[in-house]
């Protein structure tokens, strides 16, 4: 379970998170929508402490993420994150990209790591690209590789930060299909997304962020059918 309690975060004078409260249960898929600059992506990077928070707390399975005593490298093993920008390790093949962390972080033997990597890469449809360098992959393939790379660490939670935003429109579908597949398998996911169809079809709950505040959260039917908050209504009418 991920518990976010009254989290505040500023960059200089700009407060990007103004007291966020959110609890995500095991097996739940929560989509986070909202305009740019609303703090959605920052929240994700705070969950695995790539960004520090100013106040409040975030607990993952009861462990306080930003406590000094927390072993972040250990905690991060169970929180996979995939970013908007493709961030393949360009000097490593697809297979090596995926085996690196299991080998170095978990101390897995090469053969075992490769078996897992092949399984995950096949799962996301890249089973025939093992020896290829990321530079030869399309954006969609690179994103799927990044997903397989995160999955190879057997995370309990997956965070997706606008993973389709930098993709050509015709490549968005293949990545969304991969996310849907994961959701159907019961992965706990927080997806920051601009894909309203995806948010509606896949999520258990949808959260709408506006200017650093979670203005509204509820089941997709409520958010997309009968949004309570005027800003939610305004945002949804602007993206439709």
């Amino acid at each position: 379970m991920i518990e976010i309690e009254n989290v505040h975060k500023s960059f200089g004078n700009l407060e990007v998170l103004k007291g966020i409260d959110l609890t995500v249960q095991k097996g739940e898929v929560v989509s986070v929508i909202g305009g740019s600059g609303s703090g959605k992506s920052t929240l994700l990077t705070c969950i695995n402490s790539l960004e520090k928070i100013d106040s409040g707390r975030i607990l993952v399975d009861g462990t306080e993420v930003h406590a000094k005593s927390t072993d972040l490298n250990k905690l991060r093993r169970k929180i996979g994150i995939v970013f908007q920008q493709f961030n393949a390790f360009p000097h490593l093949t697809v297979l090596e990209n995926v085996t690196l962390a299991p080998r170095k972080v978990k101390g897995m033997a090469r053969q075992e790591a490769e078996e897992i990597a092949v399984r995950q890469l096949t799962h996301v449809g890249l089973g025939d690209k093992l020896g290829v360098y990321p530079g030869r992959l399309s954006g969609g393939q690179q994103q799927r590789m990044a997903i397989a790379r995160a999955l190879a660490m057997s995370p309990e939670y997956m965070l997706f930060d606008e993973v389709t935003s930098a993709l050509d429109p015709q490549l968005v579908g293949e990545v969304l299909d991969t996310l849907k597949m994961l959701a159907n398998e019961g992965m706990t996911m927080i997806c920051v997304t601009h894909e309203m169809g995806f948010a509606r079809d896949v999520s258990n709950r949808v959260a709408f962020f506006h200017k650093g505040v979670m203005a509204e959260i509820g089941p997709p039917e409520q958010i997309f059918g009968a949004a309570q908050h005027p800003e939610t209504q305004k945002f949804l009418s602007s993206v439709r």
Binding site: T45, L50, K104, A146
Partner: peptide, 10 residues
């Protein structure tokens, strides 16, 4: 890229 590495627990 470095964030991706750290997020994997490196």
């Amino acid at each position: 890229t470095r964030r991706a590495a750290r997020s994997l627990g490196m």
